[in-house]
Write a protein that binds this DNA or RNA. Structure first.
Lengths: 156, 156
DNA sequence: GGCTCTGATGCAAGTAGCTTGCAAAAGCAT
DNA sequence: ATGCTTTTGCAAGCTACTTGCATCAGAGCC
């Protein structure tokens, strides 16, 4: 039985252990960067969902693990390829979140706020729209709604 | 009656004249940049929809009007505010298209190809999803589908 | 516990997309 | 034509993101 990379995983307690197992299941090395990034996203998804690379750097530092921004990007690319994380392209930046199964996004065109939508009905609709366009929806976060959020409501 | 800025508008013939009228209706100055950008997008929307700022620069040059890239961006920002043009945020870049009424987008996560979807059915779905999220859909291009396009079809 | 090999990380430099300050040029009302 | 205001090109700058390279650390093996 392999020894856990204590220094890293311990910071996150049980969550850290769960993340480590998840990585091993994918035959991935358990490194501080991967554990910290996934850990930060796990915590973040509870309240304000999806972080920028920079915010993630700050979040992992806050967990006691300081990561270079280049490392954050490399780690995110890796985790995205594994299907553990997904990117949402926004104006001038990209936000990253855990790739939890069926969820979509709403992006405010004014304040860039991002919220998660979990309407199951969307899925059948998406399927038929994709069929029309000869397009295979990514099984996850297929839809991004653009509009204006409640907070930025109509000024007139 | 104001004299038309011939040097610019003439390059585009009838389309140019129509664009000029459209701008005046918005009480906007009719400048080479605005006319050329709208003209290029009008032509482009016939075949490969939505251009990057760089492509737009090339397209307007091809129409005989050379624009600095900074001008292209400034013009796009202006036209977007007028509701004549819309931006689609993509990985590492933004594409711009005419803001013609009801249309949505499908973006390929592999090759970044962008296609336009005009499924009317989507609209009712979008409405209900927005209601759930207390979100007002932009009346235009509200939905972006992410997935894999026909050309990039499953390799396995 | 120690050894080694491979992949991960930090640092620094570089690239691309986009913005901004400023002076010169052009639109358009008179 | 004249003059006020906006627009444009140029160049510099900024931010998001990537890459090369030397060092360091995870994980299998002894």
């Amino acid at each position: 039985m392999a020894r856990l990379p204590q220094s890293t995983v311990n910071h996150l307690g049980e969550t850290g252990a769960r993340i480590a197992m998840q990585l091993r299941r994918h035959e991935e090395r358990v490194t501080p960067a991967k554990v910290a990034v996934l850990g930060a996203l796990t915590r973040a998804d509870e309240t304000p969902p999806h972080l920028t690379a920079r915010e993630l750097g700050a979040a992992t530092a806050h967990l006691g693990i300081r990561l270079d921004e280049a490392t954050v990007y490399r780690t995110l690319t890796r985790l995205e390829a594994l299907g553990l994380v997904h990117a949402v392209a926004m104006n001038h930046t990209t936000r990253f979140g855990l790739d939890t199964p069926p969820h979509h996004h709403a992006v405010c065109d004014r304040c860039s706020a991002l919220q998660v939508i979990t309407a199951a009905q969307l899925d059948t609709l998406v399927a038929s729209a994709c069929a029309l366009a000869e397009f295979s929806p990514g099984c996850r976060q297929a839809v991004t709604l653009n509009g204006v959020c409640g907070a930025c409501a109509p000024p007139a």
